Amino acid sequence: MAATLSDVAARAGVSIKTVSNVVNGTGRVGAETRDRVERVIEELGYRPNVSARNLRHGRSGVIALAVPEIGNPYFAELAELVVKAAEGYGWTVLIDQTDADPDRERLVLQGIRSHLIDGLLFVPGRLSADDFAARTDTTPMVLLGERLTRVADRVAIDSYAAARAATEHLIDLGRTRIAAVGATPSGDAVSRGRYEGYHDALVAAGHRPSARLVVPQRRWRHESGVEAVGRLLALSRPPDALFCSNDLLALGALRALHDHGVRVPDDVAVVGIDDIAESRFSRPSLTSVAPDKRHIAETAVGLLADRLKGSFSSAPREFIAGFHLEVRESTEG
């Protein structure tokens, strides 16, 4: 039978209230008494009943993370880090997949899970500012990603800066016909940011951007990278480098280049964004912009904790996470 609060109190020779204060970090407990209670907790293997404690405070102890695709390795890795960060608050994380479908995203936004959760971490893909303005659910929410600022607390990377760093790396290698796979100036905030970073890096280096070298893709997956390479290699003057808007596109591109007998990086250098685990094990291994995913997860969970504690009633806060370039064989083999 699991040890109870009463068992700990009896063994330590203190009141139940004292044990509760030690467990919850509340009240005034002398150092010697605290040490004795903590030793007994360890000896008996006592574990607090988090569910009961949450119910007493009107909380479920559950938060939700809503992402477009849990099968996308970036979101899977981010979800793992969110779960670990949430454990520090005694929270369980419910994962919701929206498939970037606007109707499903609106259901999330309007509180389809609000009776189950205390707070929401949300990666919106297709919602507009009007959708957020129409929100009536009061569940605390933190957004992840570049979309829609000033509607809630938000944590993101700077897509423009990440894309520019990736493109500048290719320029520094002496590449002059650099294609952009995935990003488009007419897309969402992420797509536009990555296109603009690519474009501005070329202009700053004295290169003339070519529309023929820009291959937008609606879905940033392996097969889209394969399709893009087929189109680019059919050009009379194919590219000598590819900037891909995420690693899945880049990994698909690597496969297609191999199948066409194109050497990487000798003939074509390739860079992606996200630094997913698969990129370290591809052949050649993929150079990628690595966002600080741990910082993103921990900051987002911390912001949600602040809102749940009522620590902030101010305007939405915004945090931009850092990144660095992981140089691997696909550019410097």
Rank of each mutant, 00 (worst) to 15 (best):
F243V: 12
S20W: 04
D131F: 10
A201E: 07
D267H: 07
A9M: 00
G27D: 00
R39S: 05
Y46W: 04
R56D: 04
S159H: 06
I171C: 06
R328S: 01
R212I: 13
A228D: 00
V93E: 08
R34D: 09
A250R: 08
A161W: 07
G174R: 11
P316Y: 06
A31I: 07
I276P: 01
D96T: 08
D292T: 02
A86V: 05
S288H: 06
E43I: 05
I112A: 09
A165G: 12
I95V: 12
L120R: 01
A315M: 06
F319K: 07
R231H: 03
G310F: 09
E77A: 08
S128Q: 04
T98C: 06
V93I: 14
G88V: 02
L232H: 03
G88K: 05
E42G: 03
P102K: 08
A85I: 06
E42L: 00
H169A: 15
G13M: 01
S128V: 04
H115Y: 10
R53G: 12
A297S: 05
A76K: 10
A66W: 06
R11Q: 02
G182Y: 03
R47F: 03
P209C: 12
A85W: 13
L242R: 06
V123D: 05
H199Q: 12
D247E: 06
